[in-house]
Design a protein around this nucleic acid. Structure first.
Length: 485
RNA sequence: CGGGGUGUGGCUCAGUCCGGUAGAGCGCUGCGUUCGGGUCGCAGAGGUCCCCGGUUCGAAUCCGGGCACCCCGACCA
């Protein structure tokens, strides 16, 4: 049997590596409920840090949290035609309550546009009531045929923002504001730089006028849709009678947006930074940024005292610290465990350090050519820790960006070339597109790649493509293709 | 829903072909030892062998039926 202590390597089997890592880093586990997972404290701790960062950004831009029901009357879901068409196959429906058949079945929310805009309709009368800027943190359910921990489960956690505006322009602006917030979060907190842009018609949200997406590249060069922000136009407002009286006294339908990111981001984090030893956490999202391992022998009192003192001083410096003083494990066993869990820095304190007034520092990722451990005077280690964590954070983001750019191929002009690039290990491949959905199908059938997005200004190629990748017709939009999760 | 595979201590699995007292490693508990990269020793706990039926003196093993899960494909935050 293979060495059970080691993970399957990424190069050997990326998918097995991911599954093993998620379980062995104690992020999540399979549950008795088919398709649903248990998020364990270490994984939930990461999610909580994500929530906090995002929630702060939403609040700073004027959004408030609220909570709407888990169960949505079926008739609501059915009201918007594209919406029900898109979601029907993945609905879970409650037909009984209190032992009796219900008069009207309820859908377990796959998303909450319908129930939320029906309530907005009640609350909004005048342009003075707009905009409405709400967000909810909630669980949703989409019945999936095949599930993977964090990446696709039947039930998942997310936030869904829902806004209503007096004008189309204002709603569009909101959609882009959120896109920017998501991007900042992914870059600066997760160190996972996404491409941003528009979804094609066939890939957009069921019921939206347009969908902006953030697509990140994983280490296996597959793309992950990491977040979406939708301009809903008046589609839902019309169906739910969300009207207001304008400044001019006209009755008008409001303009909506909705946007969300989910616990899928945790999976993205794993696949962006993890290595063959386990998880690697960007410090800003690490439930513990530093773990302190005491080296015990004989008279442990002074060592443990020093450990407590160093922990207190690090906390004071704003560092999240955990002490691992378990007696039944050797220090080495603890090192492996915390490395598997992705803690950015480890501090070791033993009798020798007490004598010298130093501590041993080990970084989760050792720079090329550097020693695995450095012995640093205690005061210096504490003083430097916040800066070291920041540097680690930046390094992860820079490396991820470099990987993405190295895996990006532009200017591809034919199907052959596209297929060749993808098979040659490319991530995102940019081509021209004539706007015909048939080309999307053709490309997917041939290469397994889908159009991830029509790149926004910043990600467009410097020279706009002229030909469609299909060889038929001229290009009306550039598309970034990738095989995706 | 098609194609393939697997169900045996908590986990990973051997045993099944060829029926005869249910095993190993890891983990767990206790005691001791060790502790600067997965300590070591001794003692111990832990099993409806997926379920139902059949064959047999006797079934984890053979036969019939069912269920569950995993992998690969068609749908997807």
């Amino acid at each position: 049997m293979a060495d059970e202590k080691k993970l399957t390597s990424r190069s050997e089997d990326f998918s097995a590596w991911y599954n093993e890592l998620v379980q062995r880093a104690e992020l999540a586990d399979y549950s008795p409920t088919r398709g649903s997972m248990v998020i364990r404290p270490w994984g939930y701790g990461i999610w909580e840090l994500m929530q906090r960062a995002l929630d702060d950004m939403f609040k700073e831009t004027g959004h408030e949290n609220a909570y709407f029901p888990l169960l949505i009357p079926m008739s609501f879901i059915e009201r918007e035609k594209d919406h029900i068409e898109g979601f029907a196959p993945e609905l879970a429906v409650v037909t009984q309550g209190g032992g009796k058949e219900l008069e009207e079945p309820y859908a377990i929310r796959p998303t909450s546009e319908t129930i939320i805009y029906s309530m907005y309709a009640k609350w909004v009368q005048s342009y003075r009531d707009l905009p409405v800027l709400m967000n909810q943190w909630a669980n949703v359910m989409r019945w999936e045929m095949r599930t993977r921990l964090f990446l696709r489960t039947a039930e998942f956690l997310w936030q869904e923002g829902h806004t209503a505006h007096a004008t189309a322009d204002e709603a569009k602006e909101e959609t882009l504001l959120i896109l920017g917030i998501y991007r900042t979060f992914m870059e600066e907190w997760m160190g996972m730089p996404p491409l941003t842009g528009l979804k094609t018609e066939s890939e957009k949200f069921a019921g939206a006028v347009s969908t902006y997406t953030l697509e990140a590249l994983m280490q296996d060069n597959k793309a992950l849709q990491a977040g979406t922000s939708h301009f809903l136009g008046q589609n839902f407002a019309r169906q739910f009678d969300l009207k207001f009286q304008s400044e001019e006294g006209q009755e008008e339908y409001a303009w909506n947006t909705s946007w969300g990111v989910s616990t899928r981001l945790v999976g993205g984090l794993v696949m962006t930074h993890g290595d063959d030893d386990g998880l690697v956490l960007p410090p800003r999202l690490a439930p513990a940024q530093v773990v302190i391992v005491p080296i015990l022998r004989g008279d442990d009192g002074p060592v443990l005292e020093k450990v407590d003192e160093v922990a207190a001083r690090l906390k004071e410096a704003g560092v999240r610290v955990r002490i691992d003083a378990r007696e039944n494990l050797s220090p080495g066993a603890k090192y492996y465990e915390w490395e598997r869990k992705g803690v950015p820095y480890r501090v070791e304190i033993g009798p020798r350090d007490l004598e010298k007034g130093s501590v041993a520092l080990a970084r989760r990722l050792t720079p090329e050519g550097a020693k695995r451990k450095e012995f640093v005077p205690e005061d210096q280690a504490i003083a430097e820790m916040p800066g070291r964590l920041e540097a680690f954070q930046r390094e992860l983001g820079t490396a991820a960006l470099a990987r993405r750019d190295a895996a990006t191929v532009r200017g591809v002009e034919s199907l052959e070339e596209l297929e060749e690039a993808l098979d040659g290990g490319a991530g995102f491949v940019f081509t021209g597109w004539n706007g015909d959905p048939a080309v999307e199908t053709m490309v997917q059938e041939r290469t397994k790649a889908t159009p991830r997005l029509i790149p926004g200004d910043e990600f467009r190629s410097s020279e706009a493509p002229t030909k469609c990748v299909s060889g038929e017709g001229s290009s009306v939009a550039e598309v970034a293709w990738a095989r995706a999760y």
